[in-house]
Amino acid sequence: MAQKALKTLAARNTAILNRTHLISLGVNAFFFLIHFLLSSRNLTAWFVLTLPSLLIEFWFERIGRPTHDNGDLKRAGEDLEAKGLTEWMWDITYWSWGCIVLAALVGNKAWYAWAVVPLYSGWLAFTTFTGARKGLAGMGGGADEGASSGAAGQSKRQAKMEKRGGQKMQYR
């Protein structure tokens, strides 16, 4: 059972990548089926707005697909369920698929739903920046900040201890 964790990761990555390719094929085939059979959709918008999800899909294929050498696992690939940037890339892919299906069902105006992605990214960057700024503001060591923190600055453990009546903290 050598490298059991790597073998598990390789199997999971292979399943995720295969499922991703099938879903992408199905979504885009559905769009083209509607486009050619029922009514015309904007293919330029489809290409421009599908390009990010296709690039992300190929990037996942490159970093996540396990490689084997004579039946032995050579490389398991990166974890495709990782937090952070990988998670954000999955969100972009899912949103792209949703917009493609929406554009196929509703029409060309549905492509404007893709504008949510840059708006959400901007909001996320803004809240991260303001949160970091508030966190750094407390590092100034001002005397008035320490006095105003009082009981609101205690941890949950300290609050429980005081509530039970044991080991009371004295604040100066």
Rank of each mutant, 00 (worst) to 15 (best):
G84T: 01
N28T: 11
F129V: 07
V117R: 12
S53G: 08
T67E: 11
T8W: 02
L73Y: 03
G146S: 10
L105I: 10
K134Y: 05
A110E: 07
D144T: 03
A103Y: 04
L54P: 13
T50E: 15
R12H: 09
M169V: 15
G64H: 05
Y112G: 11
A143M: 13
Y94G: 05
W90T: 01
Q3R: 14
K7C: 12
L9S: 01
M161N: 10
F126M: 00
N18D: 09
G150P: 04
N13I: 03
L49E: 01
S148N: 13
L37T: 14
L136A: 04
K7F: 10
G166A: 14
T44W: 04
K83M: 14
R62K: 12
A159I: 08
R164F: 11
G107L: 05
N18W: 10
S96E: 08
S96N: 06
F47D: 11
F60V: 01
Y94I: 12
A15R: 06
L73C: 03
F126D: 00
W123N: 12
L80M: 09
M89L: 15
A151M: 10
W88C: 10
W88Q: 14
L9H: 00
G64I: 04
L55D: 05
I92F: 03
F31Q: 04
K156I: 07
R164T: 12
G98W: 02
L80Q: 07
N28W: 10
L38K: 12
V106Y: 09
